[in-house]
């Protein structure tokens, strides 16, 4: 029988002496802003999400990847690479978005419900740092997930490319070297497209934006379900609004009132379609550096703004 001694406070007689080595403990001056405090909350958030096993989403991604490559064996290699990129990048986009919403929705409400937030804020931790630590924890989680999924996708793409190259080499034994080189170049160019990387960065930034927006919504939502439903709603509106706006502007003259209305809609429902560069990339259209920077800045701007809004609401919140 194991006896856990949870009922014996040992107050060592030497406690006073030992504690006196901590006389200098509080002499470190209080700092109004502390990276190490934020980092503690960030890492704690990451630990929480990891131990909640949110990374299982990545397994689903892996299964999807394997499943689709089996299914694709019947196509020509151009089609195969095309579909592989389409499916993988689409899945990365959806999975990071989903992860961003689901992982963030419960972060603050759960802490408030469990009253863990009392224990944290009773320490010298500004509320702003608490919110910042939470969101950076999610952003880190999203970064890890995006990296893992991208690595898996690129690995599969590389393996398929090698397989196609080997098959082609076998088929073209004895062909003239120029012809062979042409064939190989064709395979390589249709497999990896260097524009994929900025495309993935934009996917990540879209997820960051969604996480920050979810955090903001969760500061005044009454339940987690509410937050998630609102976010799914925003997700779809955000993807559709660009089309809707074009349609609207065609039908109506672009008067001042219309513009103000559309600006408000754009603030509440960020134009998520603008973050969908991968469609073009997969189709083979190169994206300009200017477009990439513009979209990236838009993502960073939205993420920062929603985080600040979340911190602001949380600051005035009665816990």
């Amino acid at each position: 029988m194991v006896v856990i001694p949870d009922s014996c406070f040992v107050i060592p007689s030497s406690f006073d002496i030992r504690a006196s080595s901590f006389i200098g403990l509080m002499e470190t001056r209080y700092r109004a802003f502390s990276i190490s405090r934020i980092l503690a909350i960030t890492l704690n958030t990451l630990t929480e999400l990891t131990r909640l096993r949110v990374f299982y989403v990545l397994l689903v991604f892996a299964l999807l990847l394997i499943g689709s490559s089996i299914f694709m064996a019947q196509f020509s290699f151009q089609q195969e690479f095309q579909i592989l990129k389409d499916v993988s990048l689409g899945a990365i986009s959806i999975f990071t978005s989903l992860l961003a919403i689901v992982a963030t929705a419960r972060l603050l409400p759960q802490d408030i419900e469990d009253r863990t937030v009392y224990t944290i804020l009773a320490k010298p931790v500004p509320r702003f740092e608490y919110v910042l630590g939470k969101i950076t924890g999610v952003l880190l989680l999203l970064a890890i997930s995006t990296l893992v999924m991208s690595a898996a996708f690129l690995a599969v793409l590389y393996l398929r490319e090698q397989a196609v190259i080997h098959a082609t080499l076998r088929q073209m034994v004895g062909a003239p070297p120029e012809q062979l080189a042409d064939a190989l170049r064709e395979i390589r160019s249709s497999a990896l497209n260097i524009d994929i990387f900025p495309g993935i960065i934009i996917i990540y930034l879209k997820a960051c934006l969604l996480a920050a927006l979810t955090l903001f919504v969760s500061t005044f939502a009454t339940t987690n379900i509410f937050t998630i439903v609102v976010m799914v709603f925003i997700y779809f509106i955000g993807h559709l609004q660009a089309t809707a706006r074009e349609y609207w502007l065609q039908e109506h003259s672009s008067g001042l009132l219309t513009r103000v209305f559309l600006a408000i809609v754009a603030l509440l429902f960020p134009d998520l379609q603008a973050f969908n560069l991968v469609d073009d990339i997969v189709a083979g259209t190169a994206i300009s550096l200017a477009l990439f920077i513009k979209t990236a800045l838009l993502g960073i701007f939205y993420t920062t703004m929603y985080t600040l809004l979340a911190a602001f609401v949380f600051y005035g919140k009665e816990l």
Partner: peptide, 10 residues
């Protein structure tokens, strides 16, 4: 460890 870090200990 978490709460100690919040108090600036390390």
């Amino acid at each position: 460890r978490f709460f100690g870090r919040l108090c600036g200990l390390r």
